[in-house]
Write a protein that binds this DNA or RNA. Structure first.
Length: 782
DNA sequence: GTCTGCGAGGTTTTT
DNA sequence: CCTCGCAGAC
C-alpha cells in the first residue's frame, strides 16, 4: 500500500536539506508587475515583514495575492513548498493555484501548502497526530456523526433531549472551539450553559473523540494549535520552513485561526493578510472582525496598503454600496472609486408577494437576455439571484421551472451531505478503517438486517467491556453469543463482508471496482432498487455519481479525505444558466447582472441575527448587503415584497431598512407591476420611462406600502416589524365570480385561497393568480 | 424489531 | 409546509 503521507514527509525533509544558495537564482524579469496599479504593486513588492492589504470589493485582491506569490517564486525568495498560503474556501484555493500557474508561465510543481485552514491543519496533524493523542489515520467527523455522538452523550447524562437539544450543544462546542477554548479553559461565566453541564459534556465529547481516533472540524485547528504551543521544537521547525505566509479573507478568521497564524508567523513575521472589513460576514460562525481591525497592533510596524480602485462595477452601483455600508460604525474605512462612470442606476422595485417577485424577475431575466430593456443582450450565465436565506430559493425554482428558464442552484443541499452518499461513505470508511465505530454504527442496520437498538447497545457494551472497536465487538458477539441466533447470524455475515473488503483494500485492489462491489454485496444498492419511493431512482443515480467521482482518486483513503474536507461539488456546466445562491455563497464572485430579492425587515436584515447579536448582528447584515450590491458589474436590481408566505402563513413586512440607506441619487424606482391593474404588460417598458416617475420615496409603490401600513394603524413603517394578516379578509372574490385579468382575459373564479385565486380563464385556461391582479368583470372599463 | 401515524419544531449563513 | 423523532400497534 502506498502511503502518500510518508512520501510527502520525505520530500519535505529532503527539501529542507537543500542549501539556501540554490534558491538564489537570479531574479527573472517581472513583466506581471506592469499590469498592476501602484497600490497593487506595492502590495506585491512589500515582501518583508507584516503587511495588511485592505482590499475593497472588486479591487483586484486575488490578483494582488496571486501576483505576490508569483513574485516570491520569481525572485527566488521561496520555493513553492516554502510558502504557506491560506484561503477561506477550497474553491478559492483551487482558483489561486490556477492563477499562479498562468502567472509564472508554466508548471509550478504544486503549492502543497496552499489551502484552507482546515486542509492545512489536517496535513500538519497527520504528521504529528501522536502529539495530540491521536493516530495519524484519524477520521474527520462530519456534522452528522458529530450530532449522533453528542446525542448519545446527552442521553447518557440523563438530560432531557427536548429541553436541551444536542444541536444546541453542538453549537456551543463549535463556538468554544472557534475561540480556541478547550474544556478546561471555558470561562466560568459560561459554565451555566446547557443545564450547567455544557463543559462537562464538552470534556466527555473530547474524550470520546480521542478513543474513536476522530476529530471534528474545530479539532483540526485546535489540535495543531495545541501541538505548536506545547512543542517549541515543532513550532520552530515550521516557523523556519514557511518563509512567507499569506492569508486571504483575513476578516473571516476566528480566534483559533488567528492564534495558529500568529504562532507560525512569530519568527520572521513575513505575513501578508488580505481582507476587507466591510465584507466580514461570518461572525455567526466565530469570525472576528477584530482580527483585521487589530492587525497593526498585533504586528507593530506593519505596512498597510489600501486597494481602492474598483474594476468591477459602475459608479452608480459603487455609490449605492458605499452609501449602505457608510451606516456601519466600526470599520477601517475605504473610499472605493472607479473610472467607469455612468451606467444604469441601481433599480428598486416592490412587489405584492414573493411569488410575484419571482415572476417579475423571471420575466426580467428573459427580457434582459433578449436585449429588450434598452441594454445589450445579457447571457443568463452572467445573471445571478442572491438571496439571504435558502428557503427563498424555492419560489424562484418553482417559477423558473414553469417558464422553462434554465437555472443552477449553487450551494444547495450538497452532494456529500445526502443520506445515500453518507451511508455509502460509511461503508467505505469501515472497509478502510475497521475501527471506525461511528461509521459502522451508521450502517450496521442499513439495509435492514434485524439489528436494531438492542443489537447496537449490545455491540457498544461489548466494545467497551473488551476495549475493542464495535466491529470487533460484533465479531465476538457473532461467535460467542449475547444476542438471538438470528441477529448473530446477520452480524457474522456483515463482519465477514467487512473482513473481506478490508483485505481487498490492503491488497490494493482497484478501488472503483471494490466500491461497486461493496455497494452491491452489502445489499445497499439493492435496498434502493427495491424501494418504490419517487426519489429512490435519484439516489441510485447519486450512488453511480459517487463511484464515478472515485475514479479521479488513487485510492479510497484519498477519496475519503477529500470528501471530509472538500465538501463542495462544483459541477461546471457550460450551459447558459441563471445562478441562484445565497449572499454568503456569492462572496468573491461577480456578475454583470444581479438581482437582490427579499429586502424586507425581518428577512434581510434577518430578525434572528438582530435578536441574537443586536447592533453587531445588524452591522453584519449590512455588510452582507454591501457584498450583494458589489457583486454586480453593470446592473443591480433590489426588490422587496409586501407579503410572503412562511410555513403556510401569510406575513406582511416592511421594506428593509437598508432600502432607506440607498442613496437616492443612484437609485431608480421601478413601478410595481399590477399597480395599474395589470401584469407585466403594464410595467414600464424603458428605464427612462420609470425614471420620469419621480424619486424613490415618493414612488407609487412606496406610497402604497406606506399607506397600507398606516391604514392598519401600524404607524410609520420604521417601527413596524411583521404581522400576520387574516388571509380570508384579503380577497373579495367568491367562487363562481366573473373576473378580468389584464393578461389572461375573462374567467370564472374556481377557488379562493387567501389572496390567491384559482381562475378558469376563458382563453388562457386554469391559472392561479393573485386577487389583486384581477378586477370584477363588470368593472372593466371597455 | 419494524412499521405507521402523530405532534412538534424549523432555515440564515459553512469549513 | 416539511421533516424528524417518538409512541403505540403488529
Amino acid at each position: 500500500m502506498t502511503n502518500a503521507f510518508e512520501e510527502e514527509a520525505d520530500a519535505f525533509a529532503a527539501a529542507a536539506r537543500t542549501p539556501l544558495s540554490m534558491r538564489a537564482m537570479a531574479a527573472r524579469p517581472a513583466p506581471y508587475l506592469d499590469d498592476l496599479n501602484p497600490a497593487q504593486r506595492a502590495a506585491v513588492e512589500a515582501l518583508d515583514g507584516p503587511v495588511l492589504v485592505l482590499a475593497g470589493a472588486g479591487t483586484g485582491k486575488t490578483r494582488a495575492l496571486t501576483t505576490r506569490i508569483a513574485h516570491l517564486l520569481n525572485t527566488g525568495r521561496a520555493r513553492p513548498n516554502e510558502i504557506l498560503a491560506v484561503t477561506f474556501t477550497n474553491k478559492a484555493a483551487r482558483e489561486m493555484k490556477h492563477r499562479i500557474g498562468s502567472l509564472v508561465g508554466g508548471v509550478v510543481e504544486g503549492m502543497p501548502w496552499l489551502g484552507t485552514f482546515h486542509a492545512l491543519s489536517t496535513k500538519l496533524l497527520r504528521r504529528h497526530a501522536e502529539l495530540a493523542g491521536l493516530k495519524s489515520n484519524f477520521t474527520i467527523l462530519d456534522t452528522d456523526d458529530q450530532l449522533r455522538l453528542l446525542r448519545q452523550l446527552v442521553q447518557a447524562a440523563n438530560i432531557d433531549e427536548k429541553r436541551w437539544p444536542p444541536r444546541h450543544l453542538a453549537g456551543l462546542i463549535d463556538g468554544w472551539k472557534n475561540r480556541a477554548l478547550t474544556p478546561e479553559k471555558v470561562p466560568s461565566s459560561e459554565a451555566h450553559a446547557f443545564a450547567h453541564r455544557g463543559t462537562e459534556l464538552y470534556a466527555a465529547y473530547q474524550e470520546r473523540l480521542r478513543t474513536l481516533n476522530a476529530c471534528d472540524f474545530g479539532d483540526l485547528l485546535l489540535h495543531v494549535l495545541g501541538i505548536l504551543q506545547a512543542h517549541p521544537d515543532v513550532l520552530e521547525k515550521y516557523q523556519r520552513w514557511f518563509r512567507y505566509i499569506l492569508v486571504d479573507e483575513y476578516q473571516d478568521t476566528n480566534v483559533a485561526q488567528y492564534l495558529w497564524l500568529r504562532l507560525l508567523a512569530a519568527g520572521h513575521r513575513n505575513v501578508a493578510c488580505v481582507g476587507d472589513d466591510d465584507q466580514s460576514i461570518y461572525g455567526w460562525r466565530g469570525a472576528e472582525v477584530g482580527n483585521i481591525l487589530r492587525f497593526e497592533k498585533d504586528f507593530p510596524g506593519a505596512t498597510v496598503i489600501r486597494l481602492e480602485q474598483n474594476y468591477r462595477s459602475t459608479s452608480h452601483i459603487l455609490a449605492a454600496a458605499s452609501g449602505v455600508i457608510a451606516a456601519n460604525a466600526s470599520r477601517l474605512g475605504k473610499t472605493l472609486w472607479t473610472e467607469a462612470e455612468g451606467g444604469e442606476k441601481v433599480r428598486l422595485i416592490g412587489h405584492w408577494d414573493g411569488e410575484e417577485e419571482a415572476r417579475w424577475i423571471g420575466e426580467e431575466i428573459e427580457a434582459l437576455s433578449r436585449g429588450s430593456r434598452g441594454l445589450d443582450p445579457l447571457s443568463p450565465d452572467g445573471m445571478a439571484i442572491l438571496v439571504r436565506a435558502t428557503h427563498q430559493m424555492r419560489a424562484f425554482e418553482d417559477r423558473f421551472l414553469t417558464i422553462g428558464l434554465p437555472y443552477r442552484v449553487i450551494g444547495g443541499p450538497r452532494f456529500y451531505e445526502r443520506q445515500e452518499i453518507r451511508d455509502a461513505m460509511a461503508y467505505f470508511r469501515v472497509a478502510v478503517s475497521p475501527e471506525d465505530g461511528l461509521a459502522f454504527e451508521r450502517i450496521v442496520n442499513t439495509p435492514r438486517r434485524g439489528l436494531g437498538d438492542k443489537a447496537v447497545q449490545e455491540i457498544n457494551r461489548t466494545a467497551r467491556e473488551h476495549e475493542v472497536s464495535p466491529l470487533d465487538a460484533a465479531r465476538l458477539i457473532a461467535r460467542d453469543g449475547g444476542l438471538p441466533a438470528k441477529a448473530r447470524g446477520s452480524l457474522g455475515a456483515l463482519v465477514a463482508d467487512f473482513d473481506r473488503w478490508h483485505a481487498q483494500v490492503r491488497e490494493g485492489a482497484d478501488h472503483v471496482a471494490l466500491s461497486e462491489a461493496i455497494l452491491d454485496e452489502s445489499g445497499y444498492a439493492a435496498m434502493w432498487q427495491n424501494e418504490k419511493s419517487p426519489d429512490a431512482q435519484g439516489r441510485l443515480e447519486n450512488l453511480k455519481e459517487l463511484v464515478k467521482a472515485l475514479d479521479e482518486f488513487d485510492n479510497l483513503q484519498g477519496f475519503l479525505e477529500h470528501v471530509a474536507l472538500v465538501m463542495d461539488n462544483e459541477t461546471e456546466e457550460a450551459a447558459e444558466k441563471v445562478s441562484i445562491m445565497t449572499l454568503h455563497a456569492a462572496k468573491g464572485l461577480e456578475f454583470p447582472c444581479v438581482f437582490l430579492p427579499g429586502w424586507e425587515d425581518g428577512l434581510f436584515p434577518s430578525q434572528r441575527a438582530m435578536d441574537e447579536s443586536g447592533l453587531k448582528g445588524l452591522e453584519e447584515e449590512r455588510r452582507l448587503a454591501y457584498v450583494g450590491i458589489t457583486r454586480a458589474q453593470r446592473l443591480c436590481t433590489i426588490s422587496f415584497a409586501a407579503n410572503r408566505r412562511i410555513y403556510n402563513q401569510w406575513q406582511s413586512a416592511m421594506p428593509s431598512r437598508f432600502v432607506d440607506e440607498l442613496p437616492e441619487a443612484h437609485v431608480e424606482v421601478l413601478t410595481p407591476p399590477g399597480l395599474y391593474g395589470g401584469g407585466l404588460s403594464a410595467a414600464p417598458s424603458t428605464l427612462a420611462d420609470v425614471a420620469a416617475r419621480g424619486d424613490v420615496y415618493n414612488s407609487p409603490g412606496w406610497r402604497r406600502m406606506a399607506s397600507r401600513a398606516t391604514e392598519r394603524g401600524m404607524g410609520a413603517p420604521r417601527e413596524t416589524r411583521t404581522m400576520t394578516i387574516d388571509a380570508s379578509a384579503v380577497s373579495p372574490y367568491e367562487p363562481g365570480a366573473r373576473v378580468f385579468h389584464q393578461k389572461f382575459g375573462y374567467g370564472t373564479v374556481e377557488a379562493v385561497e387567501g389572496d390567491k385565486l384559482s381562475v378558469a380563464f376563458d382563453k388562457a385556461g386554469s391559472k392561479h393568480v393573485v386577487a389583486r391582479f384581477v378586477t370584477t368583470a363588470e368593472d372593466v372599463p371597455f
